[in-house]
Design a protein around this nucleic acid. Sequence first.
RNA 1: GGAGGGUUCGCAUAGCGGUCUAGUGCGCGCGCUUGGAAAGCGCGUAUACCGCAAGGUAUCGAGGGUUCGAAUCCCUCACCCUCCGCCA
Length: 424
Amino acid sequence: MLDIKFIRDNKDIVIAGAKKKHIEVDIEKLLLLDDKRKELQKMIDDKRAEQNAASTRIASAKSDDERKAIIETMGDVKTDLKKAEESLAKVMKDWQGLMVLVPNIPDMSVPEGESDADNKEVRTWGAIPEFSFEPKSHVDLMLLHDMADFERGTKVAGFRGYFLKNDGARLVWALERFVQDRFMHKEGFSPMIVPSLVRREPFVGTGYLPQSEEDLYKTQDGEYLAGTAEVATMGYYMDEILDAQQLPIKFFAFSPCFRREAGSHGKDTKGVFRIHEFMKYEQVVLCEASHEESVKWHEELTANSEKLLQELELPYHVVLNCGGDIGLGQVKKYDLEAWMPSEKKYRETHSSSYFHDFQSRRLNIRYRDKEGVLRYVHSLNNTAIATPRILCQIVENNQREDGSIAIPEALKGYMGKDVITKNR
RNA sequence: GGAGGGUUCGCAUAGCGGUCUAGUGCGCGCGCUUGGAAAGCGCGUAUACCGCAAGGUAUCGAGGGUUCGAAUCCCUCACCCUCCGCCA
């Protein structure tokens, strides 16, 4: 959410920002509604002042006759007030409906573009592996070693269902323990296991609702299943006022994640790249309300994840997402994409973004700064690791001609083996 | 799932239709007092919106209703507590 005053004062910037993100929102209509809102609010405030004054006179009236006389004069005020309040309620409904659709303004450095095809490569790390044979897909490799069962996954869980078995399960748990160990004692990060089943408010607060309703699973009691631990983690301090000394607050948050993938029916239908149910460890930061702080932590969160990919020996690149490929609330986003040999391209493993105070306004998370002024915190998040997706890159990049899979040095201890072979 | 009790200014409490622009205690801030401290005394101690300002309006878990007027009465919802039932 942007500040309505900011929108009023910077109409052109807001409109240009929305255009850059390829998001349609009628700012002119919002401003007209806001004029109406202010006008009605003023009218209501005046009427109420009149009513309050009369109320005092009624209370201190000397006689019943005097009291009755004043009450009679209040009839019209009450009628007018009721009418104005009803009008305001209608205006506010539209006003709020539009306000939550106004996107945050993308950073100057965000490239123009419509889709992920327009994202700009920022840097690359690691050599793309050369194979003397045709590399197998992660699906074939996992089936070869009985690391996953997709047929039974579908039988039991439906489309995109999966079972992870044997070294498939071991690899996921190895990755989890590897990442846990990297963050368990990392300076300032509080490990936290957070809810996946979350009420509507934190989804609106983080910017996933109202526009992405169709991407979320909803329960018969009205809660939604979160597609990322970010939602519950950001909800943690909802409606609270923090001390400046507490900041920055850094979480290493885990939750199971659920996504309907409603808009991507035909995409990545095989394997564990795009699935309805997965696990994710997420870095979430709340920091002081300064652009410099946001940028500093954004780079740090990105660096943390790059370090993990480097330790896992996965060749990757960092892309700067273009306007059309960043979310409503994001100011700037980097995706980390690791090489996928079967597809001969980089595929996303991490997503690192910052929001300024867009989320904290919606969630009402403030802090008292050194001068005692209340400010909205800035928020950021980035994947630490998402499983089992990253298995795709791990098994494909480390495959050998005989189908065996070398275990990256960093995971050997956790796997208890150096290589996954056919006769496991 | 059933029964009951609760949600008030940072914390604890008062409040039972109009002097509630929410009292009191604690805490916090400033001052007085003191050689210094404690105690004591005095003053202050929310947020949002509108307004140049004076000031006005709103907020007593949330929403709706009754009323000239609601922290106070009624309804719905959320959450917390106690007990019963069920259960990983």
